[in-house]
Design a protein around this nucleic acid. Sequence first.
DNA 1: ATGGTAACATACATGTATGTATGTAAGTAA
DNA 2: TTACTTACATACATACATGTATGTTACCAT
Lengths: 222, 222
Amino acid sequence: MSVTGTTTRSASERSTQAERRARSRSALLESAARGLSRYGYGNLVLEDVAREAGYTRGALYYQFKDKEDLALAVIEWVNENWTREVGAPAAQQPDPVAELLVLARGHAVFCRRDIARVVMALRLEFAGQDHPVGRETDRIWETGVKRCVKLINAGRKDGSIPPGPPARAVALGLFGALEGAVIALAGHAPHDELLAARVVEGALGIDNDRADVAPATLEHRR
Amino acid sequence: MSVTGTTTRSASERSTQAERRARSRSALLESAARGLSRYGYGNLVLEDVAREAGYTRGALYYQFKDKEDLALAVIEWVNENWTREVGAPAAQQPDPVAELLVLARGHAVFCRRDIARVVMALRLEFAGQDHPVGRETDRIWETGVKRCVKLINAGRKDGSIPPGPPARAVALGLFGALEGAVIALAGHAPHDELLAARVVEGALGIDNDRADVAPATLEHRR
DNA sequence: ATGGTAACATACATGTATGTATGTAAGTAA
DNA sequence: TTACTTACATACATACATGTATGTTACCAT
């Protein structure tokens, strides 16, 4: 009852089991994210994933049920990071257009890390199939599109976005263009940010008066 | 010497060997194109390709050396169609911006067929690798980007395109955005065309005064 | 009709990645 | 120290796709 610590070590001496497990899991997740981003799901070899993380497949199958479970964990992990680093900051913008532009720039910066193509790559790979991984990526994609639809409708209501095709079509084109542009511009910082914003403005049908005024470049952790 | 026909049949009665071979090859190519577009290279199962075309793997390995040879043939086939239906018509436009916009619209229409994602899918799958299929898709991609760079430079010289990031960065973003938008808008005709044009305008940094004036919708064969 | 070749289909051999079962070392509580 | 569990590594069994070798049918010249 009155036990202050379950370990004999003073405080954070070295590796307890939980820490050890967490470290291994993180390393495996990061390696798997890089692998999924580069090779996709089918071409991803679990032995390579484990080796790049400094382990063998044994560690992988201890932490994750199977390949599918690993991929789903990676998707969740990447999506959490995206929400924290891109989605949340954008939500604080005052008007719809500003939010969409910050979203575009933030996504470009986020995708400078090689882990970022994960969702796009998996969504393409499983498009049309009925696979759990595909369903999850579709769900994330749909969340983004729905958010975008709401912003477009709001912007059209207040006059900052002109009328045009159905909001959903615009949102689909906007998101697709954003991902495509950012992937094509991998390794071409800092122009990725501006072009991401420009492309979004184009999809919305608004003039490029706001994209070219460079705001403070978004920072990303690490 | 004076033989008028090598066959006993009057003219084009039925299947000569060459015709038979050509028909089989076409059917296999089309099936493989659909398969590559949907599943990519690694996940493509040759037995499914053959079955969808009405054959077995025997026919496939008779017409093509191996899987790689088949994929390269598909890429060449798709690229030829693209050049005829999209690239050539766009080249007849009077000014750079018009050519880029026709390119965008034409690409959108071209991609309404499910075979069109082939190049994009393979380019993503083999990005960073050193595989013959990846090299070929990269080559085609680079051809398009180079063409785009020239048009951007020409447009900037005559004032129709404002200055901005390096032409190559703009071209990369433009092409990536175009492909991404068109893929995301699959099955959303006719809005795919307008949004493709809008996105290109956005990448170029020009106002959307030309994209929204709908020209005659481009036709595609079959 | 018939010998021969092209266009396939069928059967087999190989490699490779996954998943599981078992072995072993690191950490934990008595 | 010792019993015990966690966290891995190693070894094996299975499945599956490719590529090849062989068999079979359609087409063609004589």
